[in-house]
Design a protein around this nucleic acid. Structure first.
Lengths: 235, 235
DNA sequence: GATCCTCTTTGATCTAGATCAATGAGGATC
DNA sequence: GATCCTCATTGATCTAGATCAAAGAGGATC
């Protein structure tokens, strides 16, 4: 079989890292690698939960929407992240590729069974889920109580941290120059704002020399302390 | 020992239901029952995660706040719910009793170890965490994209469902008359609104005969269909 | 290098919900 | 049953951010 776990690029970071080589061979038999084009959906809100997967390459957004088209991004997924709803019957959100991506897909039934038989794997999955829960709760404070300026500042700081491991010019665990993996509309959908408000807040930060914007996608943090102050209390 | 798990009121609903009687005896040795007065905190945001617990009686709110006092309720806990952050070093939120309550407390280190040795318990914990994650994500859509009217309607429906198992006059899995376990300010903190806006929305629903308000704490749903429509799209 | 196209910025105006300010309505306590 | 409380409602006003409406600003494609 071609999709061999042994040579998988995320085998050390994904939940599979809990498995030894015999177990990897077993789970490999249950999986198939699938390519997804940017914009294509992997899972639909409201559908039965039939598959779960590991992100191997690319990026995904997790969204939930209202009938009239209002959309909220409720999560982002990067390589080694786990996607889908094990041990449950419905998917409560849509998962869409933000860039051309590759995932390692399992049927949910197979996966559920395999997890029950491998407590170490289940433990990894629990840890991931707990971490994700913490992250999601943090964004509830942002969505419920923060102003537009605070939201944008918090977002830029989180992105600089989250993208940090994949690059170079790092100061204190934060990346000082980074490329946003999405456009303004999607930033707006993450922050519960409109595209215009996001744009205005960014230019404001630029005017105050807190950040620089070499182009639409790239952001450079000039004054991380100031940005942190704005994120926490709008100062 | 007095706090015997065998006679615990939540033993069939809490994660402990995964354990047989020998295991219950073992976990009993690790636990102590603690009473908490309404308003008292059990866990503080930012503190090291030293304890975890099961709610036995009462209710708790889970909050996160900004320096200037703005507060967001990011979760609610009822009897049989699990509290705390296992397998992690910090608590990211404060847990406060909303009513006089009882919890069954474990040291986090003991609990972590016990869970690792009992995969069925870990599985229950994972299921709970996944369900909670779904719930929290649903509220991200509410906080990020719903109007005040939609938020209040969604809230009333969720409360009627969540309180349903503990009472009588049920229609289609929903409780038609129920007592809110908290005041208007806390409803506002759940919905990311102000107390005045919540109050206005409630009187509006009353005027339109969608709900009745016998008194400040009690709510009666008169037209569940209408309420559902309002919750989903503001109709 | 002109013509699209899509995405972003900027400006003007509007409005949902916040804020400010009384007023009402139980429920303890004396 | 008067005096405090605390909490909820109602009203008047204000404002952050939405909405509406142009104008830039790259990149593709020809």
């Amino acid at each position: 079989m071609m999709n061999n776990c042994e040579q998988c690029v995320v085998k050390n970071k994904a939940i599979c890292s809990a498995l030894d080589s015999d177990e990897l061979i077993a789970i490999n038999r249950l999986s198939r690698k699938v390519s997804i084009k940017a914009g294509q959906a992997l899972i639909w809100e409201g559908d039965d939960s039939l598959i779960v997967a590991n992100v191997v390459e690319g990026a995904f957004k997790l969204t939930s929407s209202l009938e009239d088209g209002r959309e909220q991004i409720i999560g982002l997924l990067y390589p080694s992240d786990f996607v889908g709803r094990p041990f449950g019957d419905k998917n409560e959100y849509t998962v869409t590729a933000l860039a051309d991506s590759k995932v390692c897909v399992f049927s949910r039934a197979d996966f559920d069974q395999f997890v029950r038989d491998h407590p170490d794997l289940e433990h990894k999955l629990l840890q991931r889920t707990l971490t994700e829960l913490d992250r999601v709760r943090r964004s509830m404070l942002l969505l419920g109580r923060k102003t537009a300026a605070e939201r944008v500042a918090s977002f830029l700081l989180e992105m600089s941290e989250r993208l940090a491991d994949s690059s170079c010019s790092v100061v204190g665990g934060q990346l000082q120059l980074f490329a946003l993996p999405f456009g303004r509309q999607q930033v707006a959908d993450i922050l519960g704002l409109t595209i215009e408000t996001v744009s205005r807040q960014m230019t404001q930060l630029k005017k105050n020399d807190v950040i620089a914007l070499p182009d639409h996608r790239n952001v450079q943090i000039l004054d991380a302390g100031r940005l942190q102050d704005i994120a926490d209390a709008g100062a």
